[in-house]
Amino acid sequence: MASALVALSEDAALQAPGFAMPPAMRALTALATGAPISAGVLARILGVTPATMSRICGRLEAADLLARVSDPRDRRRTLLDLTPAGETAARGIRDRHARALAASLPSECGSEDVRHALEAVRDRLRRTTAASERSLPASDEPRRM
């Protein structure tokens, strides 16, 4: 049942009303899970090209949802971080995703089923992120989690 609920949650995230830019939403929620990271690392985590990531970051920055900050360990590098408005937007995305998931579930699902499904989604996201981070060159690894 958990794998079916994971699939439902992924569909709900992409089909929830008002979500016109799924890659931008994924960028916001990815940045909300840890410390600032480079655009290159974020592009690899999201599975988009650097050019696409640049456009996404430009839109998020123009909307005051994302800020580019200097890397405190290497001032030549720029990292991406959420602004307070970006943190609020990421929370809103997670809340809407949870509501879309709840609406997608059969009415006979109990709270224990939902809890197990959410744990499965969380575990899958962690495994996906960890696999993406393992594929990064050592010099560009994110400093998160």
Results as ranks from 00 to 15, higher is better:
Glu133Ile: 06
Asp11Ser: 13
Glu108Met: 07
Ala138Ser: 12
Ala100Pro: 11
Ala39His: 00
Ile45Leu: 02
Leu65Ile: 05
Leu8Thr: 14
Ser9Glu: 14
Val114Asp: 10
Glu87Asn: 07
Asp11Lys: 11
Ala20Gln: 13
Glu141Ile: 01
Cys109Phe: 13
Ser70Trp: 06
Arg99Ala: 11
Ala43Leu: 04
Arg134Gln: 00
Ala102His: 13
Arg94Lys: 12
Pro142Asp: 02
Ala102Phe: 13
Ala98Asp: 15
Ser107Trp: 12
Arg127Ser: 04
Leu65Trp: 03
Leu14Lys: 12
Ala20Lys: 14
Arg68Val: 06
Gly18His: 08
Ala100Cys: 11
Thr29Arg: 01
Arg115Asn: 07
Pro137Gln: 06
Gly47Lys: 06
Pro36His: 02
Thr49His: 07
Val69Cys: 05
Arg127Pro: 14
Ser38Gln: 07
Arg124Thr: 09
Glu108Gly: 08
Pro36Ser: 06
Arg126Pro: 08
Ala120Gly: 15
Ala85Asn: 12
Ser54Glu: 10
Ser70Arg: 15
Met21Asn: 11
Leu80Glu: 07
Leu60Lys: 11
Ser135Thr: 02
Leu42Glu: 10
Arg122Asn: 03
Asp11Tyr: 14
Arg44Lys: 11
Ala12Val: 06
Glu87Lys: 15
Arg99Ile: 05
Arg115Asp: 12
Arg127His: 08
Glu112Gly: 07
Val121Trp: 01
Ala12Leu: 03
Ile45Gln: 05
Pro17Trp: 01
